[in-house]
């Protein structure tokens, strides 16, 4: 990979991260009403002296630029602020609830992307008018089924058909690996369905594109088998647009995970941020949004680099 390409990508990454941090920083400042009074907490009598004292402590009496500098300096050192209600560092609260979200997202990517390749390849072999319409309707249905509804329907079916099975909640993998994975099955299916629909349609059209190329005809001519042609020759070239889409889907999955966690009672970042909004715990809201967005941006940066490794034309 040429150094110039890498350098320009890193500059892009830093600019976007900087912009994201400014928006997240300003978010809390735009909140109507007196955020300081809220920060004093529910159990404290609000007096002007207390407000002034807190403002000085948090730095709200300084110019906005100084406040931003102070805040971002803290963030870079891993200090994301203090939770209003518990008084604990926000970073610790996020750390305690980040694993279910990471597990849910990663398993969904693996499931969605993993299944999309054989499904897309299978669909590429189905030609003709009827197959066209079926593929299109199926893909659009997969994209537009509300994932939280699908989650609710599966919970309902499981509780009716298999009353003994525990479909809700979360146990850490280290504590009960089997219980952990079995509780992940339904959320992963619900969360990854739109991604599966999108990616398998993409694999199919990329595959059809690849199958009409000359090198496939050559492979056929030299007597390569059907399986070998599809998986060895066509798939490799179909993978390039696929990888970019997986990166973009990661953002959808992070957002979707917030809803799915709520449906399946999984104690992840989604529940953390929703709880924080309900109790107006703004430092926690701010930090959770910052952490999730940074993760998404960095994932897409890595996908961009991977893309350049697979297809050297990109970095020229």
């Amino acid at each position: 990979m040429p150094l110039r390409f890498l350098a320009s990508r890193i500059v892009d990454l830093l600019i976007v991260l900087f912009g994201v941090s400014i928006i997240v920083f300003l978010m809390i400042r735009l909140i109507p009403g007196d955020a300081v009074a809220i920060m004093l907490g529910a159990n404290t009598e609000i007096t002007p002296e207390r407000i002034a004292e807190l403002e000085a402590r948090v730095g709200l009496d300084k110019p906005v630029l100084v406040q931003y500098g102070h805040w971002i300096w803290g963030v870079l050192q891993g200090n994301l602020g203090t939770s209003i209600w518990t008084g604990r560092p926000v970073a610790a609260e996020i750390g305690a609830q980040i694993w279910p979200t990471i597990e849910l997202t990663l398993l969904s990517i693996l499931f969605g992307a993993g299944l999309a390749i054989p499904l897309g390849a299978f669909m590429a072999e189905a030609r003709g008018k009827g197959a066209e319409v079926a593929v299109r309707i199926g893909a659009i249905a997969g994209l537009t089924i509300p994932s939280f509804w699908l989650g609710i329907v599966t919970i309902f079916l499981v509780s009716k058909l298999m009353p003994g099975v525990q479909a809700l909640g979360y146990v850490p993998f280290t504590q009960d690996p089997l219980g952990n994975l079995s509780r992940m099955i339904l959320p992963v299916i619900a969360l990854s369905l739109p991604m599966l629909a999108n990616l398998s349609r993409l694999v199919r059209s990329a595959m059809l594109d690849a199958l009409s190329q000359d090198y496939i005809r050559t492979a056929r001519a030299k007597g390569a088998g059907r399986r070998r042609i599809i998986y060895k020759h066509a798939l490799r070239n179909a993978l390039i647009p696929f990888i970019t889409s997986v990166g973009v889907s990661a953002g959808y999955l992070l957002g979707g995970a917030i809803v799915i966690e709520q449906v399946f009672a999984i104690p992840g970042l989604g529940r953390l941020v929703l709880g924080a909004i309900a109790e107006r715990n703004y430092p926690l809201v701010q930090a959770t949004i910052l952490v999730m967005t940074f993760a998404f941006v960095v994932v897409n940066f890595l996908v961009d680099l991977l893309y350049a490794v697979i297809d050297p034309r990109v970095s020229r």
Binding site: I15, I22, I23, Y252, L254, G255, V273, I289, T293, F296
Partner: peptide, 14 residues
């Protein structure tokens, strides 16, 4: 680009 960098639902929640 910066606005686009946020996951859709997360920005809406923010």
């Amino acid at each position: 680009d910066v606005l686009f960098a946020f996951p859709i639902l997360l920005l809406a929640i923010g």
